[in-house]
Every structure is written in C-alpha cells, then in structure tokens.
Amino acid sequence: MIKRRAESRIKELLTRFPAVALLGPRQVGKTTLSLDLIAQSIRPSLYLDLERPADRAKLADADAYLDSHEEKLIVLDELQRVPELFGVLRGIIDRRRQKGARHGHFLLLGSASIDLLKQSSETLAGRIATVELTPLLANEVAEAATASGRDRLWLRGGFPESTLARNSAESLEWREAFISTYLERDIPALGPRIPAETLRRFWTMLAHQQGALLNASALAAGLGVSGQSVARYLDLMVDLFLVRRLQPWTSNPRKRLVKSPKCYVRDSGLVHALLGLKDLDTLLGHPVTGGSWEGFVVESLLACAPAGTRSSFYRTSAGAEIDLVLEIGPTERWAVEIKRSSAPTVSKGFHLGSDDIDATRRIVVHAGAESFALGAGVEALTLQDAMQAVENAEIAARKF
C-alpha cells in the first residue's frame, strides 16, 4: 500500500479536535486511507458508508445510534449523502465536550468542500479540522524518483487507479470513465442541475487554457451562457477539488497588477484525458505541455506547503511575472518559476517580480535530473527537491 502524506496529519488532528474531515475528489483514496487508519488503531472504530442503504438506515435515529457507539472513532464516508447529519454531529460533540471528551470522535469523508457538503446553516466551526487528500504526489510514488517515472505520473495524473494501471491505454480508459461518471452521476447527486455536456465543454475549455488567466467572457461566449453561469460552473468545480483558482498577488498598490485569477484543472491526468492526449510523445508535442507541467508542479508544491500558506501568482502590465508566490509563515515569501526545460533560464520579468514582492527565496523548478545554482540568488531545483524544500519549510513553520 502507498503511504500517504496525509496520514500522520489526520492522526495528529484527531488528538486535538472532536471531528476531522478528510476531503478530496472521488476515487482519490479517502476510503482506503481511512480503513488503513482503522486497521492500525488499537481503539475500537465504526465505519459507515453512507452510499449503502443499509448503513444509512442505521442513522434513522442518528442521535441514538451514534451515542450508542460513544467509545468508538466513527468514520462516516460520503457524508454529502446525508447533509442533515451536520446538525446532529454538532449536538453530539457539544454534549461530549461537557463530559470532558474533547477530541477524536468522528472522521468525516467527503468529496466536496464543507460548504458544499453541509447544504445547511449548521456549522461545526471550532469543532472540526479539515485535511485535503490530493491525488498521488511524486514523493508518494516510488517510481517517480526517476525522470521516466515522474513523467508517467505527470501523464497519468495521481488518481490511484489511473497511476497504477497496467498500461497507458487502461489508465486513459479509467480517466475517461471517471470524467463521465462525475458529470452524469456525482455532480447531479450534489444538487446542481447543469447539463453534463455543457459542464464537459466547460471543463475541456479550462484544460485547453491550463494555467492561463481566466477569461470569463470568452468562456461564456464559447458555451453560449451568461457570465454568471460561468462563475457558477467555476465555483462548483473548485468546490469539488477538480479546478484550482489561483488568485493574483495584490499587496503592491504602486504597481498595475493583473487582477484576473489563473485556473488549473488540478489533476494533470484529467487535463490529458479531456484533451485526448494518449501518451507522452503526444503530450510533449501539444501546446498545453507548458501549462500542464506548470499545473502539475503547482499542485505538488501546494500539497506539501504548511497549513496557512498563502499562494498566488504575480504579474504586472510592465512584464514582471512570477508563476507561483508562496507566503509561508510570517517571514518567508518564495518566488517560484516553473520550466519544463532541463536547462532552465529565468527572464528579466522574474527578477523584477521577485524584487517587487521582496522575495526571500527565488526558485526555478525544472524537469532536469539535478539541482544547481543559477546565479543572482536563484536556485534551480528538481521537482522532488522543491517539494522537499517546501516540506522543510513546513517543519520550520511548526517549530515557529
């Protein structure tokens, strides 16, 4: 079994919070991870899959049933199927707190953000911590330590069934089925009534523009819908952890800064499936190569970043540009340039942008086999070394 980075974080949070929510897109490995945590635990546990009618029936009187298992860690999978449970959980947690039992009661698994999941005014604020489980990362897949293994992960993406498929054809087939199922079943089950074909076109258009500035009016014109509809579609895809909306850095009022966000389809394998890119050669010859690699690196670094890290990009009308800005803790501000080349160079715009934001570290993440100094205070790092640098920053932030 692949060791997931989120595992230790979940264990730690369960010692401090009454409930922990493990969130991420479907098929990313939430159930597998939760069952592994149960198997490791010496504490009694109860697992309920809320997609199973038999398990949902047990919660007909949820208060009574959950109270009868008070001594157990209760895992509720696919919580979005029973959103009314949020109010019940709030009451149970508050009663147990009054008895002195303050942590480790519930592990909640969901395929969307908490706001979308609960679909009500009930809140677990102060009672719940959240952990996002991303698709598999390069530092979780042993084969990705080599350039060929890393590129295979980039091509196939990080959903375990896609990553671990026997060959590229089976991987692509799985991803195409995943996309269809999400559009035709999973999204409608959450409530939104958007034609599957419209949402597929929207998703595909975003894939074509991977890493580009959001042009909502162009998307609306291409889909034949209003700008408000485009905003609604984008909000939905962000809440489902399928699309990332990276906001511009806006802390310099003296500069004419770009104000539109950049958008990424978060899993590189889904980008390639949406665009019909079947193998690495086809991918490397396609115009999306640079944007796809950039998105792959952005997701990898943000998955390793400390809680509370602020991420953005920097671009001015004068040509200063930074692909990713990481503000880690109170003192660190990293400027990150992302290059598919194994012999990277940096532009004048990167240096200008780094000066503008007072970057404390300047990094170029590249596709080569080793890290080295580029001069002028810039480090050229491999993806693995860049991820390690961010993880080291997380360790330092915890000590701080």
Score class of each variant (00 low, 15 high):
Glu170Tyr: 05
His366Pro: 01
Ile92Val: 13
Leu107Ala: 11
Leu37Pro: 04
Ile363Thr: 04
Gly224Ile: 10
Thr382Ala: 09
Asp77Thr: 11
Ala397Gly: 07
Ser121Pro: 00
Glu12Trp: 01
Phe372Pro: 00
Thr31Lys: 13
Ser121Gly: 15
Ala397Arg: 14
Leu283Ile: 09
Leu133Thr: 09
Gly285Arg: 11
Trp203Gln: 04
Ala393Ser: 15
Asp355Ile: 06
Ile322Ala: 02
Gln228Leu: 10
Glu140Phe: 06
Gln119Cys: 00
Ala303Ser: 14
Ala373Glu: 15
Cys304Asp: 15
Leu35Ala: 07
Ile128Pro: 05
Lys262Ala: 11
Ala54Leu: 13
Lys262Arg: 15
Phe159His: 04
Leu108Phe: 07
Arg43Gly: 08
Pro44Phe: 11
Ala129Arg: 11
Leu242Glu: 05
Leu37Asp: 02
Leu383Ile: 01
Arg56Thr: 11
Ile74Leu: 08
Pro18Gly: 07
Phe159Glu: 00
Leu109Thr: 12
Ala212Trp: 01
Arg315Gln: 14
Leu48Thr: 12
Ile2Thr: 11
Arg310Phe: 09
Arg5Asn: 14
Ala165Leu: 10
Pro44Gln: 13
Gly227Val: 05
Ala196Ser: 15
Ala129Val: 08
Ala305Gln: 03
Ala376Ser: 15
Ala220His: 08
Ile74Met: 04
Glu294Asn: 09
Asp63Asn: 06
Ala393Cys: 12
Asn252Phe: 01
Gly91Trp: 00
Pro135Gln: 11
Leu213Thr: 09
Arg81Trp: 02
Ser292Pro: 10
Leu234Thr: 10
Leu280Cys: 07
Gly329Asp: 10
Asp323Gln: 10
Ile42Cys: 06
Gly285Asp: 10
